[in-house]
């Protein structure tokens, strides 16, 4: 019995993100009903599902862009949201440094160079300028954007812009990275370069939650796949199981569309 409790405490500590019973509605319309999930350190969790299923809302809730109505959100076992009540503002600001978010539409700052887009936030957080610059240059190289540090976002392709956005999020050295349909705004020939970068991060054991419509990618990269529909998690498991042997009828129905 005691051993069980210790184990429970251990697993909980390994969960960078835990969500329990998360609720969210917009004007009486329930978009998240009792969502629970755990993301372990070093894991990649993909969230798939039809549009309007609440995938993006879930990401927006855990990154505090949307205010949840009920449930718990924990980072490293610490409550950011407990029973629908948020931690004080100053604490939420500290939680914010634990995660990064990559948007569908990049949302780079158009008036900043690539380098400034990546380095300003850490500098504003009081980090050493030279150190941040070096880290940013390293990230630019890692993203395959050498020589682009002084370019402005409008001079880059969508795929390049999204890679800058990923570098910008990584510059904050987050423990977990959220991707909200990172390739949905890209031309098909540009999705590959972005997915490659995410795959590389997965190999480096970066903890990530990826909302995506790229099924082969989700299958290849994830440790776990979550299928959402109608504001609930219909099914989750390892990618092999969910994609090859879905248990739920709703999952089968959704995946069938992609087989054609």
């Amino acid at each position: 019995m005691q051993e069980n409790t210790v184990n429970a405490a251990l697993t909980q500590e390994q969960n960078i993100l835990s969500v329990r019973g998360l609720q969210k509605s917009f004007d009486g319309l329930c978009v998240l009903k009792d969502i629970s999930l755990d993301v372990e350190k070093g894991n990649v969790v993909s969230i798939i599902g039809p549009s309007g299923s609440g995938k993006s809302t879930l990401l927006r809730c855990v990154s505090f862009l949307e205010q949840a109505d009920g449930g718990d959100i924990l980072y490293d076992g610490q409550y950011a949201l407990r029973g629908g009540i948020y931690a004080p503002k100053a604490e939420l600001a500290r939680f914010r440094t634990r995660f990064g978010l990559v948007f569908q539409n990049f949302q780079l700052f158009p008036h900043y160079s690539v380098l400034k887009n990546i380095s300003e936030a850490p500098i504003l957080h009081g980090e050493d300028k030279e150190e941040v610059r070096e880290r940013a240059m390293g990230l630019i190289a890692k993203m395959g954007l050498e020589g682009k540090e002084n370019a402005y976002p409008y001079q880059l392709s969508g795929g390049q812009q999204q890679r800058v956005a990923i570098a910008r999020a990584l510059a904050m050295r987050p423990e977990i990275l959220f991707f909200d349909e990172p390739t949905s705004a890209l031309d098909p020939e540009l999705t590959g370069e972005v997915l490659k970068v995410i795959r590389q991060l997965a190999e480096e054991k970066m903890t990530m939650v990826v909302v995506t419509h790229e099924m082969p990618f989700a299958k290849a990269v994830s440790n776990r796949v979550i299928f959402m529909a109608g504001g609930v998690i219909v099914e989750q498991g390892d990618p092999q199981a969910v994609f090859e042997n879905p248990r739920e009828e709703r999952t089968k129905q959704f995946l069938r569309v992609f087989e054609r």
Binding site: S63, L65, G100, L101, F103, F109, E120, A121, L124, A169
Partner: peptide, 22 residues
């Protein structure tokens, strides 16, 4: 776009920094 505010918020810009810088 609202996304500019959201991007800044997630990166930890304060409301004032977001307005003045972004």
């Amino acid at each position: 776009p609202v996304g500019q505010y959201e991007a800044a918020e997630v990166l930890g810009y304060s409301k004032f920094q977001t307005f003045m810088r972004i």
